[in-house]
Design a binder for these strands. Structure first.
Lengths: 136, 136
DNA sequence: TCTTGAACCTCTAGCGACTAGAGGTCCTAG
DNA sequence: CTAGGACCTCTAGTCGCTAGAGGTTCAAGA
């Protein structure tokens, strides 16, 4: 049996976060010691590891809730893959957007020659979308 | 003079968001009509365009607040470039992290052969970081 | 001039995914 | 038996908005 702190040490998930997960129903209500402190078994540990790993991969708690349900009853492969695929699409879209921002911001940082006394071209460019090459 | 709705149409920033920006001091308190409705001039429009554009580039409201201060008094080039550089570093770090996630998630989606009745390899892999190649 | 209805006003509460703090109780090693 | 670290609950704050309630103002058409 693990205390909440032991579970935290083993998973890297902070103690208040574990309680938060219980509050929103992602972790089941833990058993309690005589003095009302949470006690976890191996199943609790595994479940939290699943959550922590999926969070680390950037999945939302809602997506994780779905996956946990699938895992609990029957583990429907197709559904799980659909969730993963959606998330993958999401990640790719975010990468593409960030790359556009990166290019634009890098370019804007170059427009100004840092001449003392002169107005800063970067600040001007931030105020004026017409100086941009693409959308964002 | 523009109403808040006209400003919204011109900038693409939603009406409640403009009021929110005023509430947190990013937009100055607007002048009012006889009937207590906000009225903006060209300066208000420009300022909101600046904010909208910088937000579109992914800058935080805090960073934008800084840039606006610089713009208001003297426009210190070096400071502005430092803010932009920090944000650029931030964007690059996020891209790198997302690319790691993308690779890992794409790989995990492949481990399962979708055999009906078999446990889903994807769900197993999500619970078990040892099946991953890298950190995240 | 009057009427309609769209646009405006303020205020509060909610989202996701936590984090911080207050004020109090329990557990365990020495 | 005692000290102090770990635990408990509860509330409120973070960021950048968004939604809704309930009420007022504005502007165009009759």
């Amino acid at each position: 049996m693990y205390s909440i702190g032991a579970l935290s040490d083993r998973t890297g998930v902070k103690v208040p976060t574990i309680r938060y997960y219980e509050g929103i129903g992602l972790m089941p209500e833990a058993g309690r010691s005589a003095g009302n402190q949470r006690r976890y078994d191996g199943r609790g540990l595994e479940r939290l590891q699943f959550i922590a790993h999926a969070r680390g991969l950037g999945l939302s708690l809602e997506a994780i809730r779905h996956l946990l349900e699938l895992s609990d009853k029957g583990r429907d492969c197709a559904d799980a893959h659909q969730i993963a695929a959606r998330h993958l699409g999401d990640i790719r879209a975010r990468i593409a957007r960030l790359q556009r921002l990166e290019a634009e911001l890098a370019r804007l940082s170059e427009v100004c020659d840092h001449a003392p006394g002169e107005p800063c071209g970067l600040i001007d460019a931030l105020g004026d979308h017409r100086q941009c090459l693409g959308d964002h």
